[in-house]
Design a protein around this nucleic acid. Structure first.
Lengths: 123, 123
DNA sequence: CCTTATGTTCAATGTTTATTGAACTATCGA
DNA sequence: TCGATAGTTCAATAAACATTGAACATAAGG
């Protein structure tokens, strides 16, 4: 459980798998939050998504996002820090990630991109 | 079987459903071929996709593509003509469709975007 | 009217998927 | 060393999905 999990190389990233990954509302919310974070520390860890689903369910979705090449997991102590593979995605599928994130942002309220606790805090 | 099937309104088009639709290789190939056709007649009918799958399987995928708002079906005699809902998609999710189609074009050989018979004809 | 071509609908099949809780592993701090 | 924290893995379950062939509906053409 301690070692860095496997990631696909840039060339191994496949369009249908990426789209399928992004089509799940929980994973889309994860990607969206990671994109928001790019302006700041660039990384988030599992606990930061606790508003979206239970821990084991999140681990399942993290696995999917990692396996399809959307994000990178870095192990540090008991934490796993994650960030988007923006450069690799841009190289393989130019404009795709931003188009998806921009579309998601437009529908932010319709999709539930923000964890419940954040909404409560904001309200 | 003769009447125009139901389509979602522009506002009813949902991002996760669109992405899920595009994540299937057969549906992605259908969308890709429809995009190619935009330069010409703009429309294709079921038979034009016979290289991708059997008729009943195609009808299933057409249903998915219609229900999620990606394409429009027009009934004319025994034919159903289909075309992309480019304007609606662009209004809802700017840049998304072109990013997906462009990405698919880059991977055209890896994905099997072109029906077998077309490949044979080209070779 | 009969036949053919186009395409849909239905039922059945096997596969994949998301979700859950419990058990587990590993690390950090007192 | 003990306990708390962070996160994964496993097994079980129910729902959704893609695929197939057979039956069906509709319209066009001889």
């Amino acid at each position: 459980m301690s070692r860095t999990p496997p990631h696909p190389t840039r060339e191994q990233i496949e369009l249908p798998l990426v789209l399928d990954c992004l089509s799940d509302p929980i994973r889309l919310a994860i990607v969206y939050q990671l994109a928001q974070q790019e302006r700041v520390s660039n990384e988030l860890c599992c606990g930061d998504f606790s508003g979206l689903a239970g821990k084991s369910n999140l681990a399942y979705h993290f696995g999917k996002l990692r396996e399809c090449g959307l994000m990178l997991t870095r192990v540090a102590g008991t934490n796993r820090f994650m960030r988007l593979r923006r450069e690799d995605l841009e190289a393989r599928f130019p404009g795709l990630l931003d188009a998806v994130i921009g579309s998601a942002a437009k529908d932010a309220s319709r999709l539930q991109l923000i964890a419940e606790c954040d909404v409560v805090e904001a309200g």
